[in-house]
Design a binder for these strands. Structure first.
Lengths: 204, 204
DNA sequence: CGTATCCTCAAACGATCGTTTGAACCATTC
DNA sequence: GAATGGTTCAAACGATCGTTTGAGGATACG
């Protein structure tokens, strides 16, 4: 069972990296299993199919991400006064941390690919694992932006999501300079994102 | 030559739709040529390879988009006073129009896929066909936002790009309601985008 | 009419894809 | 020590991929 769990984890990690690099269709099981150092048949044995493997790659990280986001949201809900920046921080920083923690560095890029794939079953899976988190954050945003109509609010949250996904998946031209530590670069990224998003959400 | 151009156009149009729907790797030449009603070998005859076809799909629309964006930018440069909203409009509206005009409705989705693919040759191609337009808009943004450092400005333009790409490629949850005409929906989209982006760019 | 040029077509090429198979291995249990 | 259930392995399966080939059709020019 231990060696099995290790094989599964090795597959998941190699899959995450290869999916980020080559896409879900572009990464073959042969490249993937070779990178993981396991037998080709191990994917179908442990995951049933390549599609199920894709889902599990998402599940492993989304569970982390959702838990951290909700934890951060709960934490600031206990404060006396919450600002828009606090809620944005609870939304953004867990994702940034995941981008740099424990090997999850490539996951946001995989997530961005999933946005680009309009595959319905994958979108349904994401919405089921993601929907309730977004709904809770939407409630908080609505509370802090009472002047916005529901439609306006949805629009702006959608645009914030686009900006964050873009930035967090490393599409952008902004790269960390060699004389800046990773920690401080992450902090700068978070500040830029929060400042921009807060201003956009507060737009007159 | 006429029937040849027609074959090429049919391939380009079918490719654009299939690339948007299934991705560059996911769309096969057999599906593609069947949808276009042409022979399988026609792609390699007219375009040399699938990769070159991908480039030409981009080139056909990017040439339109770049021309319209630069035209709009030139137009407002002639005005006495230019606002941030004017420049954003010159940047956003041509893309929105392209999303609804002359069969280019799926192109922005293809473009978003290209952002997700980190394929270097494709990125290089895009940067060569896209770079000078972005540079011109950056100059205008810098002029209208004199308080921002270069780094801040790049960051914010990058975030604006992310928000626009996300919105224009139809990722978002916002869909046109049946009681709203396409024209007015496009206008509303443009207004939301411009308002949000302008506020984000002006963030303190 | 003959030739040249461009284009289309069916067929096949080798490569690679996701998946399945059945034997071998290895720890645990009786 | 024989049997069991979970796991790994090399090998093969049929399907599909992008690309190439060579024959044939179509049109224009001499």
């Amino acid at each position: 069972m231990n060696s099995s769990a290790s094989t599964k984890e090795r597959i998941l990690t190699a899959a995450e990296a290869l999916f980020a690099q080559r896409g879900f269709e572009g990464a073959s099981l042969r490249q993937l299993t070779a990178a993981a150092g396991v037998n080709l048949a191990a994917v179908n044995y442990h995951f049933g199919s390549k599609d199920h493997l894709v889902e599990q790659v998402f599940k492993r990280r989304l569970d982390q991400l959702n838990a951290r986001r909700l934890g951060a949201l709960k934490h600031i809900a206990g404060l006396q006064e919450t600002t828009l920046e606090d809620v944005l921080s609870a939304f953004i920083r867990p994702a940034l941390d995941l981008s740099h923690d424990g090997g999850g560095g490539l996951f946001m890029r995989v997530l961005a690919r999933a946005f680009a794939e309009h595959d319905d079953s994958l979108r349904k899976f994401l919405s089921e694992n993601y929907g309730h988190v977004m709904r809770q954050f939407t409630v908080e945003f609505a509370r802090l932006l009472p002047g916005l109509s529901k439609e306006e609010l949805y629009w702006r949250i959608d645009l914030v999501t686009g900006a964050l996904t873009h930035a967090m998946s490393g599409f952008g031209i902004i790269q960390r300079k060699s004389d800046v530590s990773e920690t401080s670069h992450r902090e700068q990224t978070a500040e830029h994102l929060i400042r921009f998003a807060a201003a956009g959400l507060r737009a007159p």
